[in-house]
Nucleic acid binder design. Structure first.
Lengths: 201, 201
DNA sequence: GCCGCCATCTTAACAACGTTAGGAGACCGC
DNA sequence: GCGGTCTCCTAACGTTGTTAAGATGGCGGC
């Protein structure tokens, strides 16, 4: 059956085209424009074809969430060229918030509740690992032993998420949000440094 | 026209009943159950009646958001009985996150993007004022001059929001989220304190 | 006391959504 | 060439927010 290979390739190809079309619509026109019929129209198929590749809309969205996290992780790792560990952490904060501002709709579904907690956590894990690596390097460089490493990670993660959301939701502008994220992270790190070493003489 | 007064009262009454029904549905069954027809059924009217009191669903949801923020502000101010300013701030963090955990669906629409940025900001203003008051008191008590007070407020606000969302989205449990929020705030405050006074001798 | 008006409520409908069923048609192995 | 499978489309269902058009009923003026 030589054709079955081609068929499988075609299947995978249209599946990919669907994802790309969905991503394009999402980024350019937002979540309300992201409908099954609209996606189908863009890939020049009828709506039910989409269901041959994805069980339902949530499954398709989950794919976009995964894509978003991979994209984000790639951009964050790009900041790994910076030699100074402190600046690298500042860059992480800045780039995280920038990503939320550059891809507002993608960021929105990445953190919305359309996908359930487990899936989201699994999708976000590689990105969090980047943070863990950096924080480990930082704590080594400064000889700071964090009383609870995971807790510190979650705090930073939550802080970045919250401040990025401030920018994303329009409470503050994106530039300001990036500045806030840097200041917040810097302040947190300073706090942990002085927690390890007694604060005053 | 003696009757017009009663009519106006009746109008206001059913309007209130609609809001209460909507709130009840939202808190008990979540956003997906919050439909116009469902609300109308609960107040024993037909669906179009709702549109005599609210321009559209978003306007009704905005009302719920306002209600949510009033509720939250009330709960946060309850923490104002604590005499020690530092503990009062810790209570603020803890209660904020607790609210998000106690009213997940309400919290969700309060910070969702169904309502636009301006409306949301206006609804959240009183709650933020509570934070501003506490932070002012703290900086006075510790003789710390924050280089940018508003920035510090936004950082705390964003941090609390982010960590509460971690709990709300199920990334971490609610108890853990409360602990994280307290640790985060404490670390931030320590960071600002040691920024004002030179860190090491 | 009756008539007419105005406010109110309901039924019915529209467009769009996610999703599924059933049939038409092309393509492959034999 | 034939039978079966695989793919695709049309049509439909149920639900959503929202609007239009009629029925109903109470109030004020005569």
């Amino acid at each position: 059956m030589p054709t079955s290979g081609r068929r499988a390739r075609e299947r995978a190809s249209t599946r990919e085209r669907i994802i790309e079309a969905a991503l394009h619509i999402l980024e350019n026109e937002g979540t309300t424009a992201l409908t099954i019929r609209r996606i189908a129209t863009d890939v020049e198929y009828s709506a039910p074809v989409v269901y041959q590749h994805f069980a339902n809309k949530d499954a398709l969205v989950l794919e976009l969430v995964g894509h978003g996290h991979r994209l984000m992780t790639a951009e964050l790792q790009q900041a790994a060229t910076e030699p100074a560990i402190d600046r690298r952490l500042m860059l992480l904060a800045s780039e995280y918030v920038r990503f939320a501002g550059d891809h507002p709709h993608l960021y929105q579904i990445m953190n919305g509740d359309a996908v359930d907690a487990d899936e989201r956590q699994r999708a976000a894990a590689p990105t969090i690992d980047v943070l863990k690596d950096l924080l480990t390097a930082w704590s080594d460089a400064h000889d700071v032993v964090l009383t609870d490493f995971d807790e510190a990670c979650e705090i930073i993660w939550g802080t970045l998420y919250g401040i990025a959301s401030l920018g994303h939701l329009g409470t503050v502008g994106n530039d300001r949000a990036r500045r806030l994220a840097q200041q917040a992270l810097q302040t947190l790190l300073r706090g942990w440094r002085t927690a390890a070493r007694p604060e005053r003489a």
